[in-house]
Design a protein around this nucleic acid. Structure first.
Lengths: 113, 113
DNA sequence: TTGACGCATGCCTATATAGGCATATGATGG
DNA sequence: CCATCATATGCCTATATAGGCATGCGTCAA
């Protein structure tokens, strides 16, 4: 079995680099599919598929604009990710310390040989 | 083709729910493999495999402790994820506004029919 | 209505990977 | 050296999914 579907889990949805690029581009405002595809060097169907995933997981929304379909950012879904990683913030610096302690242990162990 | 390997991309590595659970558990301190497996209801080989991915991507480190191998958190790799999502923070609230505007547009469009 | 444009979808393939199982590997105590 | 415990790995299978391609579908202008 595999992980939760890309279409239901934001963590998985943003695991794809090109989808992250799309989100970054959309910070600049709404864009039609073809423009996104062009700017990111992907095919139009490719862009559409990534956009579909992002839409189903709620990170973008779309609206019709004439012949075009404009995709826009809905970043709210990223907040849980930000908060989850934030739960480790206190360990970022501490990690250095622990690594130090770890290295110290290694040195000691080596001396005790 | 697929996305960047779980073993090289932190975003992908944490896309797996069980790996996230492992990381959360490790905030409580180092743990041997069997204990992790037990607490998370996974098999020992399963835990070992997830730990390997986490180790290769640099989110955990291990040290020998007698017969056991203790895995500990190295959260530094989560920082880029936190920062990347943080880059969207200004859009979280704004998203509501945009959504509102969007809904307004819909209503207008409907009236204009 | 017709043609052109913009986008979504279906089909197919290759690949990554999660999980189950058996087993190899490594360390410890006698 | 042997038996045992703790982990890591290899093998196999099922599945998700990214990407290429062709094509369907809706919209607009003439």
């Amino acid at each position: 079995m595999a992980r939760a579907a890309t279409t239901s889990d934001v963590f998985n949805a943003i695991a794809e680099p090109q989808r992250r690029e799309i989100l970054v581009l959309l910070r600049g405002g709404e864009r039609p599919v073809t423009e996104l595809a062009e700017e990111l060097g992907m095919t139009q169907p490719g862009a559409s598929k990534h956009l579909r995933v992002l839409r189903e997981v709620g990170l973008v929304r779309d609206r019709k604009a004439g012949k075009q379909r404009l995709y826009g950012l809905d970043a709210r879904g990223l907040r849980p990710v930000h908060e989850w990683t934030g739960g480790f913030e206190q360990f970022w610096n501490e990690s250095f310390d622990r690594l130090d302690a770890y290295v110290q242990d290694l040195k000691q162990a080596r001396q005790e040989d």
